[in-house]
Design a protein around this nucleic acid. Structure first.
Length: 334
DNA sequence: CGGATTTTGACAACTGTCCG
DNA sequence: CGGACAGTTGTCAAAATCCG
């Protein structure tokens, strides 16, 4: 399935999602690091350049982590959880950096007076980001979702993991027509990794997302008791349920939110989970804990389908990069 | 190749919780 | 307190896989 029209980019790229705890450091993918950096460059400093700031940021590299100076870069560019950052290696440890919002589009910065005027300055200005992406800043302000009708929250439970399916709130399902029939969708984690899935409605009125859930939880390190929020994106061929926020067990418990119809943090199930999780930990006699002996074959199929979606996603990122003026293939993913 | 076995998907019933 | 809703669990059928 090699496309002869594709070729390796002159400037190797990698991209990284902005995840909780991102301010202290960001990791360079090991593969990228060993291929393009390790042994090829002396010193432990990298230089980050960004289009909006038009200045160069000096960041310390410890192992394959960017540490000192990264925080300043993050703050200057108002990077938030759910964003993606594309690093284009221009050589000599210089990276052109592009920030993509959680909608997979390039982050727009208000044309502040800092542009041009600040070119010589060390300050980028406020970088006040255009608030056209309403799903931003999800980790620190979960309440903002309560007004965002394109979002819904669910908890990770032993049951939904076991069945590889997760419920969809009725109101949400109704609003977007998922309450009738079956709908192919894409589940996507914070890093943009997609899983083919389906929304299925039952006669009883229950609506579930079937398939991909377990894989997403595994890949995204979501554990039983964690609560996560999905945002519906309609900008693709099929609806995308993108994981845009997560609350670990402890954090979730600390939020006594009132029950809401669509936007809820599933407080009730959380308390249930506490009990059930203990049972699970002590060895739940699961009625469906038989291990699949066909998993290998199915995984092969799954990987094939996933790779198509990943390709789509990379293409999307490419497009955003392209918008900056130069088209490059991203062949170094994390 | 075909029967036996295992796995998975689909649905309904049950149960607990919340809100009006 | 009852209705609505969501999570869990039981059951069954179909599909997939194994194995002689």
């Amino acid at each position: 399935m090699k496309n002869p029209t594709l070729f390796a980019p002159k400037s190797p790229h990698f991209f990284q999602p902005i995840l909780p705890g991102f301010k202290s450091h960001i990791k360079i993918p090991v593969k990228f690091f060993s291929k393009h950096i390790e042994g090829k460059h002396e010193g432990n400093t990298v230089y980050l350049r960004s289009y909006p700031s038009r200045r160069t940021w000096k960041v310390k590299m410890e192992g394959h982590k960017l540490t000192e100076g990264w925080k300043e870069f993050v703050e200057a560019h108002d990077l938030r959880v759910g964003d993606f950052v594309v690093f284009k290696h221009k050589g000599d440890m210089f990276f052109d950096v592009t920030a993509l919002g959680s909608s997979c589009c390039e982050v727009q910065y208000a044309p502040s007076c800092s542009h041009g005027e600040n070119e010589e300055s060390d300050e980028i200005g406020e970088s006040s980001r255009k608030e056209k992406e309403i799903e931003e800043n999800i980790e620190t302000e979960p309440d903002q979702f309560s007004s965002d009708l394109t979002c819904f929250s669910q908890s990770v439970t032993t049951s939904n993991l076991m069945r590889d399916s997760v419920g969809v709130p009725r109101d949400f399902a109704k609003r977007y027509g998922f309450n009738i029939g079956r709908h192919e969708i894409v589940l996507m984690n914070e890093e943009g990794k997609p899983w083919e899935s389906e929304v299925i409605s039952y006669k009883s009125g229950k609506v579930i997302v079937a398939g991909g859930w377990k894989s997403l939880c595994t890949e995204s390190k979501l554990e039983v008791g964690d609560s996560c929020t999905f945002k519906l994106l309609h900008n693709a061929k099929m609806p995308v349920f993108r994981l845009c926020s997560r609350l670990p067990k402890a954090g979730a418990e600390a939020r006594p939110l009132k029950r809401a119809r669509v936007q809820r943090w599933s407080q009730e199930s959380r308390s249930k989970h506490d009990v059930r999780e203990k049972i699970a930990e002590e060895g739940e006699p699961s009625r469906r804990n038989r291990t699949s002996n066909k998993s290998t074959g199915d995984q092969g199929k799954l990987q094939q389908t996933q790779s198509c979606f990943i390709f789509d996603h990379v293409a999307k990122v490419n497009q955003s990069v392209d918008n900056m003026g130069k088209r490059q293939c991203i062949n170094e993913s994390c």
